[in-house]
Structures are given as structure tokens and as C-alpha cells.
Design a protein around this nucleic acid. Structure first.
Lengths: 132, 132
DNA sequence: TTAAACTCTGTACCCGGGTACAGAGTCAAA
DNA sequence: TTTGACTCTGTACCCGGGTACAGAGTTTAA
């Protein structure tokens, strides 16, 4: 099946039809010409394109970044791809640091709740209310 | 200044006027009655309410969760607050694990780029394109 | 007393990543 | 050949957390 309809393409790639059309609107996927009064047919490599997008999303790239990544077919652009990936890595690392701080604060709050006795006020509510 | 206008409240709490109104629409803040043909005045404790919201947001709570948290003034509800915090902690931990996986994948990809020689294809592009 | 600065209500819009639907046209199997 | 499944275009809507603006009224300082 070298040529398939949009529905088959969507199923093969594991996304919804609307998602394919959405990617076309964003310019991530080209839309084959429509034969007059007919239905568009997609080549098998369209499936790989969609999978590329999905894999890159899992690595934390936005659709806009994926567009840039996909315009880098030339292996000489490895430097550009690497710097996009490095930026993303830096972002991921700072996000991890933020979340680790958050985890510390929540753990501490929960611990204080557990050590609370009797009629004392709830440490979580107190802390949020500004008592710290 | 025990009574202030919305603009002063916003400045005192470090948010925009529109944000105050937005929180009122969501029921997080009550809107004082408006004297006929006049302007609303806010008590000083409104500032603490807004700061409560902002602190809770920094801990990763959504505005809907903050609403629930704020309805828990009674110290006997400490258990409820604690379980909200524990759920949030679990979420934060799984988000950290996801990001750590991501960091590993990106680091590996960047490393392969750095070891690439000459005319080899870019490992990032290759990987995304489905080579493996 | 007048001008600037503020406040009021209501509504629309932003971001990103899609989803949902209407109403018309097309394709494939029985 | 008809029925059901699909596809087409176009537009509106979802989420959360706000922001932006219009056009009116109000308050305050000079």
C-alpha cells in the first residue's frame, strides 16, 4: 500500500485524522495535491514523518522546534541539531531543579503535618497563609 | 490603610488588577459589596489571601486545588490538606522521573553527535527518523 | 474645577496542542 | 445502486491562567 488515505495514515502512525490535518496546517507535513473531485493519497514515508514528530515530542520538543529540526535533513546541520538538543537539555535540567525544590518543600510540609499534635493549626495552611 | 482600592491591593500583593478580578470570578477571593455608584474597598487581609494563592501556586497547586485548600480553615482538616499535598508530591516525583529519562536520552544523543566524524549522518536526525 | 488616574462591567483574546462538529462530496463493498 | 464508511473545507471549541480592551463612571490632586 504505497498510497493511502488520510485515515489509514492516521491509524498507521497512531494519531487522529484531525492531528494529521493540524500538522499540515502548521507546515510540519505537506498535503499531497488533491486530484480534481477526489481524495488525497499519502506515500508511506508520511508515516515516518508523523512518527518523527511524535518521537521528538517525547523528547520535549515543541511542534515549532520540530519544524526547525525537520528542515535539517542535511547531515552537515548536525551542529544545529545538537545545539537545539543542548538548549532543550539545559531547560530540562533547570526544570528538574525546580521540581526538586518543590519536592523538598512538600516533603517538609507533610512531615510537619505528621508531627503535629492535637489542636495545633495545620502547618500547610499556616505556611501558605504566610506564617512560614 | 485598612481599606484599599483594587489597584492598591494588586500592587500590595504583586499581581495585576485583572488577576484580582480573575480570582474573584473563580471564587478564590470575595468581592466586597460596591457602595451605590462607588468603588469597592478591600480589607488588608485580602492581601494575605492573594499571597496565599501565589505561594500555593509556587508549590505546584492549580487554582482549583488552591480553592479547595482555602476552604480548609479548620485545623481539623489538616488530614485533607496533607492528602492534597501528598498527591501533589507523588505527581512531582513522577514528573521528575519523566524528566530524568528525557535528560538521559538527550545527553546520549548529544554525546553521539560529539563522537560523530566526517560525513556520517547526524545521530539526532537519524534517531528521530526512526533508525532504531 | 478640571484633568489625570483610577475603577466599573462585559467581552474577546493569548498560548500550545489539539478536538469537535456541520454539511457536502467521494469511495468501496454487497 | 445503494448504503455506510470515509474524506473534504471551514469554523468553533477545549484546557489553565491569565491579558487586553472598550466605553462608561468615579475619585483625587493641583
Amino acid at each position: 500500500m504505497p498510497q493511502m488515505t488520510i485515515g489509514r495514515l492516521a491509524r498507521a502512525a497512531g494519531v487522529h485524522v484531525e492531528t494529521i490535518r493540524y500538522y499540515q496546517r502548521l507546515g510540519l507535513l505537506e498535503s499531497p495535491a488533491r486530484p480534481p473531485g477526489g481524495v488525497r493519497r499519502y506515500a508511506a514515508r508520511a508515516v515516518s514523518r508523523v512518527r518523527f514528530i511524535k518521537r521528538a515530542q517525547e523528547l520535549g520538543f515543541s511542534l515549532a522546534e520540530i519544524g526547525r529540526l525537520m528542515r535539517l535533513e542535511d547531515p552537515h546541520n548536525c551542529g544545529t541539531a545538537r545545539s537545539l538538543a543542548s538548549e532543550k537539555l539545559a531547560l530540562v535540567e533547570s526544570r528538574i531543579a525546580d521540581l526538586a525544590r518543590l519536592r523538598g518543600a512538600l516533603t517538609e510540609l507533610i512531615g510537619r503535618c505528621n508531627r503535629r499534635r492535637g489542636m495545633q493549626a495545620c502547618p500547610i495552611i499556616e505556611t501558605l497563609a504566610g506564617g512560614q
